[in-house]
Nucleic acid binder design. Structure first.
Length: 158
DNA sequence: GCCAACGTTGGC
DNA sequence: GCCAACGTTGGC
């Protein structure tokens, strides 16, 4: 099992938005970075857990857990001229971008803020905390995964 | 709004 | 293939 962190701006798509989706699932569309795409294509398998991170918001941090519920497949928004994520250079015959589907596992009562993550020595090497990190999908080591869970306070139910 | 960091683009 | 210019990201 591999662990991941998925970053999203809550104004665009939040973990609460995910909770309202049918089946509490969504296609993780709109990834237009090759490194992040390759993580989905080559690394993510069904059942992999991932932290859901909110960026560009009052309290950046981890807000809950999702899991991969479908492996990489073409992101339909790349073919849609009306989509913000449209890529005119991509064709159904030679799709450039993929998405995975994720399903909500748990929304946390309180987020683990970026500040808290930064204050945790065990997370020093976590990808999201590295200088200049801009990847919307990053791997999380098993040790980092455990360390984050160990920081958690109360939780809400599923 | 600022600004550092980074990825992509395109001319050569 | 180089690299300057540009656009985007994201914390503050």
């Amino acid at each position: 099992v591999n662990h991941w962190l998925l970053k999203s701006e809550p104004d665009v798509f939040s973990i609460a938005d995910l909770a309202r989706r049918p089946g509490r699932s969504t296609g993780w569309e709109g990834v237009r970075n090759y490194q992040a795409r390759n993580f989905m294509r080559d690394g993510m398998t069904v059942g992999d857990p991932a932290f859901f991170y909110h960026s560009s918001c009052p309290v950046p941090g981890i807000y809950g857990v999702v899991e991969v519920s479908r492996g990489a497949h073409p992101d339909p928004t790349q073919f849609d001229p009306t989509s913000d994520y449209h890529d005119p250079k991509s064709t159904p015959e030679a799709p450039r971008w993929v998405q995975v589907a994720v399903t909500l596992v748990d929304i946390w009562d309180e987020p683990l803020s970026l500040t808290t993550l930064r204050d945790t020595p065990a997370l020093r090497d976590m990808a999201i905390l590295q200088r200049g990190n801009r990847l919307s999908i990053t791997p999380v080591t098993a040790a980092e995964w455990r360390a984050v869970l160990a920081l958690r306070g109360r939780r809400t139910g599923r």
